[in-house]
Design a protein around this nucleic acid. Structure first.
Length: 427
RNA sequence: GAGCACGUAGCGCAAUUGGUUAGAGCGUUAGAUUGUGGAUCUAAUGGUUGCGGGUUCAAAUCCCGUCGUGCUCCCCA
């Protein structure tokens, strides 16, 4: 055996057949919820202009310099592998003049995304997200619908102990004002902050609110909270969102420290987190919120929008940990076709195709010659009905059906076999 | 970008703490008289101990480097 020369790159991984059952289940849940709420699927390219993503981010984070997969093409375009879904969808909305459609335009997506990060729990360099986006609508009911849908997906997947954390981060009117108040407060207590937070004070003061350092926790307990400083518009918006959430009886908590780093985010932000048994949060599974400023940043007309995105790998690993069952699909064969001898093998391959035409799933092991092995294989697959097609059967145009549960066998005329098996499988 | 831990057959593990030829189990493949599964039994398959260097009479074991993995910090769209 040769040594394995090639392996997946850091942070990349193969999704092996066993995991596909989970993936499929998640995909189905997302698609089902999206369809019900009238969201249409959209696919945008994996490669986009780097600027599409960097423009709204602002300069003071690691995002642009370190965490995007950027490269120059042969034609000297500066491009990147998409790090998230929203910007591409907004680009598409603007590019295709979707403001001419009835608003909001409701879209959903699912696919791979790329961030050049050091892998750790629930963080990979290539990962998958799904998301819902409602573009061109500013009323709070849509915020709530997005939250409801996100919650529904997890519920559909039987994930327990989830709570929704919500907050409002204001808009371009009130947030700068709040930032000033907060920074003022924090600056007066600078010496009580950890060294990271002292740096954040300059670069991204809102982030101090979710610092885990104990000394910072104490400082932030007395800090001004944004919900007390929202402008009237943001305040009533948020109030209405909460009223909707109450009405829908969604399990939410207010988290005044929940923030978003980037400027285009406005008003509602939320994260759905799984509570571990010790009450600790296990990181967020789905996050989202309003991004009323993004369209303008990208050069489009004013398009208030709201959306959410969920991490498939995180949800998948949670489902595995909780041993959430995945159902065998209905296409799983219940019949196995075993063959013996050259003549029978040739005829079997033809018969197999007849079953396919009749849309009856069937398993086989044409590469094996021993009947014993084929029966063993059928058994391992948990298949009940085995059709045995040997020399004798091939010459006399019949087939032997074995019931693996009882061991009872009977002969069926070859031209009746598809019909007869159809009724067996139906039960 | 910083730190901690780990790396032995396909998989999950063992190797009396530096001592001979690195072991079972599961899996896979085949067989137990020629056309009948599950149980059992038998055999085969499978590793230059991630890679490279060093120390030593002797290295899976100690040291350095490197790659990879897990986790924490940074960052988090």
């Amino acid at each position: 055996m040769n040594k394995v020369k090639y392996q997946t790159l850091t942070g990349m991984h193969d999704v092996l057949p066993d995991d596909q059952l989970y993936i499929k289940k998640i995909d189905k849940a997302v698609e089902g919820v999206a369809n019900y709420y009238g969201f249409s699927k959209i696919e945008t390219p994996i490669v986009e202009q780097a600027e599409l993503f960097s423009k709204g981010v602002g300069a003071d984070t690691d995002i642009i310099g370190k965490e995007m997969y950027t490269f120059r093409t042969k034609g000297a375009d500066f491009v990147c592998l998409r790090p998230e879904g929203t910007a591409g969808i907004m680009r598409s909305y603007i590019e295709h003049g979707m403001h001419n459609l009835p608003q909001p335009v409701k879209l959903w997506y699912l696919g791979p995304f790329f961030r050049y990060e050091k892998p750790q729990a629930g963080r990979f360099r290539q990962f998958h997200q799904f998301g819902f986006e409602a573009l061109g609508e500013k009323t709070p009911s849509i915020d709530c619908q997005i939250i409801q849908m996100s919650y529904d997906v997890l519920k559909e997947l039987s994930i327990k102990n989830i709570t929704i954390e919500v907050n409002s981060i204001g808009d371009s009117e009130c947030r700068p004002y709040f930032k000033k108040i907060l920074t003022g407060y924090l600056r007066s207590r600078k010496s009580s902050l950890c060294s990271d937070c002292q740096r954040r004070l300059k670069e991204n003061p809102l982030r101090i609110l979710d610092c885990k350092e104990e000394k910072c926790q104490r400082v932030k307990a007395g800090a001004p909270q944004i919900i007390d400083h929202l402008c009237e518009d943001c305040h009533t918006h948020f109030k209405q969102v909460l009223e909707f959430l109450d009405e829908l009886e969604l399990p939410y908590t207010l988290n005044p420290y929940l923030v978003r780093g980037l400027d285009y985010y406005t008003k509602t932000v939320f994260e759905i987190v799984e509570q571990a048994e010790d009450g600790q949060s296990n990181g967020s599974l789905i996050g989202g919120g309003r991004y009323d400023n993004l369209a303008k940043i990208l050069g489009g007309r004013d398009t208030p929008s709201c959306g959410s995105a969920g991490g498939i790998e995180r949800i998948l690993s949670l489902m595995k940990n909780k041993e959430i069952k995945t159902k065998k699909s209905k296409d799983e064969p219940q019949i196995f076709l075993a063959q013996l001898g050259q003549l029978a093998k040739r005829k079997s391959m033809k018969l197999f195709e007849e079953f396919r035409a009749a849309k009856i799933p069937m398993a086989e092991s044409f590469s094996k010659d021993s009947l014993k092995t084929q029966l063993r294989t059928a058994d391992k697959m948990g298949i009940r009905w085995v059709l045995i097609f040997g020399q004798k059967e091939a010459l006399e145009d019949f087939i032997t059906l074995r019931d693996m549960d009882s061991g009872v066998q009977k002969e069926i005329k070859l031209d009746k076999v598809v019909q007869e098996m159809k009724t067996k499988v139906k039960k």
